[in-house]
Design a binder for these strands. Structure first.
Lengths: 213, 213, 213, 213
DNA sequence: GATGAATGAGGGTTCATTCAT
DNA sequence: CATGAATGAACCCTCATTCAT
């Protein structure tokens, strides 16, 4: 009895969880590919469930969107920690982090939010939170790299976050068979962050600058 | 009635042209702000005409979109020529060109096409044309700059075009009061194109690589 | 397991019966409060059972509705008999019967049927039956009261039944904290049934007049 | 020019107005017959317009409902004034008013609101207004009739309004071919309002008692 | 028997497009 | 040419009912 802890009651639960996960994954791709306005039925069809099931799990499109974003941010944060914890080489850690970010393909969904970004930032609290958390993770790396002369000193962590957003979206503009192009351009941007560049116009970007993207 | 050649038809024409222009301008902003799915009536309202008038000028949303893009590319090409004709300093001309591009705000509309980009590229012939023309304009500058050691040699004109697209869209992600951020990031990317960067992965981008974006 | 006649099945039965009763009671109130279109899940939730259980007891909404009505009519008939058996004061018995009717709150459910009343009358046989039985119960009282000069003679038992329906529904239009208003109006109607009123238009109502309602 | 005031621009308007009126009339009947949940398409079909047209005139079901109610109250107020202005016989005027009310068949729509009456009263300001206006119209009649000994003094104008509501709904419970029954019962209620009835329980109804029905 | 997840038809609402004025 | 009312297809979301556990 203790060895076989009744899988039966869990079974249904497992099925439901599986459905939930498939819906999120399908929605993620669908939002990227067709925009956040993609018909709910198409998402349901892609996840091989009925619309009703989709709506049982997510009250409306907004809720689904939040879940997709939350799931993406979750993965992002996992990556963040993997790359940044105990980093002895701040610049190297920063580079690895940026490269990993673009691989998550979270950008598509975020980018699809653009037409309502300002509003979305307020309503989808996870987004603002994520920025804050990312800032806290990256700040030591940026400062460390700058102190060691590995990175130009006229950019802030705020600039980094915006640039990462740019690259993340950039990848999503490209179809999957052209993703290798992004990898080139990530390196170009990283090279542009090395010391020795020309003077940059305007002040550095701070957290207060991007209450919306 | 038949005797008077009458200024009226000319007048009409002027009015009509004026309407047409206002519709395109309004649609451009509306597409950027609310996505290409923005209600036609909203565009009409913004241009202060009836929907009927809008449809007299543009058969459907697709046609309006084409017109908006064509108008933007027209301006882009004008800029291109201003910056590139008789350029004695290829790298400087290239930089000025890139900076001017992001100021046109064409990116918003192009970016909004993304969910259907692959398809759009085929249907909206102007886009493919524009790429080709841009390639022809930029290629001498890129080669010139590289020959003079002003630019890294492991990037192609194809990379440049993609990067410009990235920056152009990047600006459109930011609200107008944050455009100064883009200007910083344009410079960072340009710095990253200078000689001396790390090795880039993959082959250079060629025209055949981006049959869509 | 097979040897024990076991109290379990009986227990089950009791539980099931309890569920059934709670569903009917909950549904009665829900129909009154939110109309007969109230979501089945809401009824199930109110009765603290799963929808599945609800459907085990009642094949569909229609069946549940019938059961609610039948239960209400059952109580109505019980009241009828209490008030009318061995009545030596027909008018008094009639008044008490009317007053008791409005307290049963059956009207809400019946009233909610209105949009389909004509149809409901045919499909829900209990309703027609009930009228017939009520007619049989009330007829002696009406005639008795009229013979004794306690009641105007230009109304029929048919009129009475329709009037009772009116009052019963009337109460259901009022929220619970306003039920005292109905009691006033019941008395006004009863006063209007006393001898000495003005002439009434049209013929008296007969059983054949209300094959629906 | 002054004689033929350009019917052309008005024409469309007239058509639209005609549609609007037909929609309201159709909706009124549909609400009575099938409840306020009746499919919008059915209303549209009945009015012989497309759903789109219906929605152009009324933003949603709620708006249509308001319009139907407003139109009904408009007629009700017209009747009110006809019956009550310059009335030298208060009781007679009161009776005529009550009789006219039930003929308007407004009750059906109002009655269909019941499941949400409390809420409806707040949201549909017209309803509360109407009560107030009706109170002001009837109060002099009630007092006048009572002073002349034509009406029992233990009922208030508030009671009258509630009773009228009861009769109005009562008629709507009956199908059209049975409306004559209501006329009988209106007279019975009016007879019950004459002096000489038994004692009524509870206090008289005041305006504050029926913030909802 | 009880449960509640899944299904999908149905009805509300929006909006692209047409067309009469 | 301009206008804006009318149309109806398409999409969102709800909920009655079924069924696997």
């Amino acid at each position: 009895m203790s060895t076989a802890p009744s899988p039966v009651p869990a079974r249904r639960r497992a099925d439901a969880q599986r459905n939930r996960d498939r819906i999120i994954a399908t929605a993620h791709l669908a939002f990227i590919r067709h925009g956040i306005g993609v018909p709910m039925e198409e998402i349901a069809r892609g996840a091989e469930v009925g619309v009703g099931t989709l709506y049982r799990h997510f009250a409306d499109r907004e809720a689904l969107l939040r879940a997709v974003i939350a799931a993406g941010l979750e993965r992002l944060m996992t990556v963040s920690r993997q790359e940044t914890d105990h980093a002895t080489d701040p610049w190297g850690a920063l580079c690895r982090f940026v490269r990993r970010c673009v691989e998550l393909r979270l950008g598509g969904t975020l980018s699809a939010l653009r037409p309502r970004m300002a509003q979305a930032m307020k309503e989808i609290a996870e987004l603002a939170d994520a920025r804050q958390r990312m800032l806290e993770l990256l700040d030591p790396l940026v400062r460390g790299a700058q102190e060691r002369g590995q990175m130009r000193t006229d950019v802030s962590t705020g600039d980094m976050i915006i640039l990462i957003g740019m690259l993340v979206r950039h990848e999503c503009e490209l179809t999957e068979d052209k993703e290798w192009i992004t990898r080139r351009h990530v390196e170009i941007v990283l090279d542009g962050l090395r010391p020795g560049g020309g003077e940059l116009p305007g002040p550095t970007v701070t957290l207060t600058d991007f209450h919306h993207d």
